[in-house]
Structure formats: C-alpha cells, structure tokens
C-alpha cells in the first residue's frame, strides 16, 4: 500500500549519500533494485571483488521483508560465506519473516550484508549447498532456514 512512497523516499536518500562500499546500480521502478557492495576492510576472501545484490519488493514493503539475493554475472561472483548458497540465496535472519523489521531499509540491509562478509573467515558454502541449489524451487523468504550458528 505504501511501498512506492516509502521506496521513493529511500531512493532520494540513497542518491544523497551512501556508506562507503555501497553503490546504487539500478532503481528504475519500485519493484526491483540492484545494489553493489564491496568489503572495505582487508579481508583476503573478498579482495578486489564487487558483489551485486538484487532487491525485489512486494506491495507490502516495508511491512514485509524484501527478497534479497546475490546475482552472478561475468563481473560479479557470489561471495564465499557459510550462509550464502552458490546460487546467491542468502540465509540471514534479518531477511526472513521472523527476523525482518519494518524499520530496516535497503541501506541497512546492504550494511548488514557487508558486515556479515567482513567478519567472515571461512571459504565455505552452507552444508548441503549442492543439493539445495539443485532442488530448491521455493522463493528465498519461504525457505525455512535452520540457522546453523549465530556467530557468523
């Protein structure tokens, strides 16, 4: 109901100023945006790489969470992380039904993902990645992730 209004306000703020390492790539409408993130601290896992995030908003945003995934193309790999599947699906409490809060926004999600990568040291995929990537047909937010640990 208020998604487009809220997103247009977010957009004007994003044009104004963004935290370091976060770039707005595409926001032509209020259904799908692309954002790029970079890890600022020197973490050898993410050196010199830029990751592309796709945000998909429903009419009920920000009451409901946006769908956020990493997208892979020639210039943008999927970052290594024990909570990021190799198809770009992210398992983060912030983005699921229970963990989302309407006070979050595109920028705060980017910052959270950026810091999730910054603090990671494991060059790993979630357990069962291969099977999940092959068989999953669900939308990311409908997946009932089991959070393996809360430290990462």
């Amino acid at each position: 109901m208020f998604a487009s209004k809220r997103l247009s306000k977010e957009l004007s703020k994003l044009h104004d100023k963004l935290p370091p390492g976060i770039t707005l790539i595409k926001a032509d409408d209020f259904t799908e945006w692309l954002m790029d993130i970079r890890v600022i601290d020197s973490n050898p896992l993410y050196q010199d790489e830029v990751y592309r995030l796709k945000f998909v908003f429903s009419q009920t945003y920000p009451i409901e969470a946006p769908e956020v995934v990493f997208v892979k193309d020639e210039d943008h790999p999927i970052p290594w992380h024990p909570h990021v599947y190799s198809n770009g699906i992210i398992c983060l409490d912030l983005l699921d039904r229970q963990g989302w809060s309407p006070v979050h926004n595109v920028e705060s999600v980017c910052v959270s993902l950026q810091s999730m990568l910054t603090s990671n040291t494991k060059q790993e995929r979630p357990p069962g990645d291969e099977h999940f990537v092959k068989h999953n047909k669900q939308r990311p937010k409908d997946i009932n992730f089991v959070f393996h640990d809360n430290q990462v």
């Binding site: 208020f2 009920t60 009451i63 409901e64 039904r97 229970q98 989302w100 809060s101 309407p102 006070v103």
Partner: peptide, 17 residues
C-alpha cells in the same frame, strides 16, 4: 496505522523485537 500493520503480522517491537 503502519505500526498496527506490522504488529498484526509480527507482534514485536520493530526496534527491540
């Protein structure tokens, strides 16, 4: 109005949960 929308789905404080 908007906070009620949120609470109907998720009865937690948006900030503190």
């Amino acid at each position: 109005a908007t906070l009620i929308e949120h609470l109907k789905r998720n009865p937690t404080d948006p900030l503190t949960r």
